[in-house]
Design a protein around this nucleic acid. Sequence first.
DNA 1: TTGAAAGCGCTAACAC
DNA 2: GTGTTAGCGCTTTCAA
Lengths: 357, 357
Amino acid sequence: MSTALGHGGGNGTGDGAPATLRDVARLANVHPSTVSRVLNGATSSRITPDTCARVQAIAEELGYRPNMIAQGLRTRRSRSVGVIVTDLSNPVTAPIVSGIEGRLGERGYTVLLGNADHSAEREALHIETMRAKHVDGLISGSATVDGDGSVRGLHRLGLPVVLVNRGGEDDRVPAAVPDDLLCSELAVGHLTELGHTRIAHIAGAAATTTGRRRRAGFEAAIVRRGLRLDPSLMVVSERYTVAEGARCAAELLSRGRTRFTAIVAANDLLALGCYDALAAAGLSCPDSISVVGCNDMTFADRFTPALTTIHIPHVELGRAAADLLLERLEQPELAPRNISIVPRLVVRASTAALTSG
Amino acid sequence: MSTALGHGGGNGTGDGAPATLRDVARLANVHPSTVSRVLNGATSSRITPDTCARVQAIAEELGYRPNMIAQGLRTRRSRSVGVIVTDLSNPVTAPIVSGIEGRLGERGYTVLLGNADHSAEREALHIETMRAKHVDGLISGSATVDGDGSVRGLHRLGLPVVLVNRGGEDDRVPAAVPDDLLCSELAVGHLTELGHTRIAHIAGAAATTTGRRRRAGFEAAIVRRGLRLDPSLMVVSERYTVAEGARCAAELLSRGRTRFTAIVAANDLLALGCYDALAAAGLSCPDSISVVGCNDMTFADRFTPALTTIHIPHVELGRAAADLLLERLEQPELAPRNISIVPRLVVRASTAALTSG
DNA sequence: TTGAAAGCGCTAACAC
DNA sequence: GTGTTAGCGCTTTCAA
């Protein structure tokens, strides 16, 4: 009786090499293809229950494991998918990957992980490798908007590709993304309900759809409420980092610290940077300035003040991306579609009602 | 001229299929094996510079990419390694994986990621799959001490395995781990320098080497200083979570809240739980009770109070594990070895000098 | 220096 | 229902 680890293995010749289909066939007195048919659920129905049982017994006894490399070469399906991320150290990346891996794993696919680490060169290298390893598809979390990213190229080459978290500017390649417009709407809505009217925005990099769409959503939300869209209350960050958030908040402050009473940051890291800049300027959050983040990343509830933010279910985002890819792999005839994940406002302690003007 | 994406590809027959070695051979008027020799650095020296150039030109023109699946089947080396983690959502996991992936990527290996998500069954499944996909080796971050984990079994089967973060109890399988004894020594040393003498410990699960060794290190550090080892000041947690930390700290408090003035927690998550339990009991940290964590995970500096903890360089830990595996893959004759990573005390605001007894 | 031949382990089209 | 044959794309003896 073989364990899950293939103990009791061997090919029956005593040389310790793992058993192959041929080994099983030889001991079961059948042809290798018969073994193949028995072991592949789809075709096993056409085999005599008798031989079927015999083959299975021998396979079990030998601890036979199909060689997926050989299978892949023959069938042209590797049952593995590449997952390329911009930055493994970004707090939202792990949950997204977790969601992807979980769903894909359920369906028998393995994840090849590539960390681009903000380098276009490394990203291209990973794509290269994954193509060479014949992944069945690719999920990319590093889409940038600059026209014609490498991932986009793959899509044209016919390799199924799905974007996650950040989408493409258009809808040519399927993507699972948060409803970025709604994120900003929720943030602005919350602040106006608290009485704020002069609200600043620290936008995400223009090269990312999260950055662009959240900015668009912010502007729409402001206009929709009949508030003035003040260009001096807008600053565009270059990267999603705490340091960059601090830089942008300081910039905002330098343009006049009484011009605004609240900041909508394009993500939590930027919001954390706001905390720093405000503290450095001797201002308190939320008493002087309210701050809203976006993502609700791990520990957002444990900062001081606890961060009011827009919750995005990143694990679910990852699962959705996996579903999209699975769909393309298993029903290529279906029209590609997008999934938009609904965010949710989480009120904590970094926002307060406007008291003094 | 072909781009990194293989544009300009095709096999020269116009059917859009990717070019193979044979396609290149045909157009270059040489035998496929010659092309193989040209393209493999090691053997290309034995080829006429002339044909060498011709072959390379054709390969380039066709956008030829070796099929690594076929290569793998033939050479029995997949150039991919499995990385199995206990929990992708643990804050230390991402940096470890990042370190592993970074180093392995430099050396031409791809990472297959498997998230066991605390399930032994899922872990076994991943190991199964990775064996079937013929990974060249395995790095496991989910070693438990219960004798004969599945990973250990693989090691016996001859698949190169390296443990990371948590080691095996003995040294039979190579591991890259923090110096857990030193972690506790640093924590206790820091507290005694602040005047603390009655120090409690929230130990990590006994099934993990981090839990066991940090506990042993704690006990040794206490004894070394001639302090009393009070069993009522020791509680063993079951999982590395905030909730579990809170439970353990509450348990400690229930045994008498004046019996100790400081807590050494086996990791930062447990330490965060201490914050909660102390707050719930109306106690302040660090004024009433000092708390020391371990790991220095992301944002440890941003909690309130900022957490005094033992810094472990997790990216480096991952790199070390990758190095260990690379060593086994490329120089199997070398004796397996372990790498111990040196931790560092980071003093922040959760510890204070003992003033009132 | 190059070509020929064989085969890694598997599946699938075709025969019987 | 099962066997035969061929071949996925590559590397690697062995010859020449």
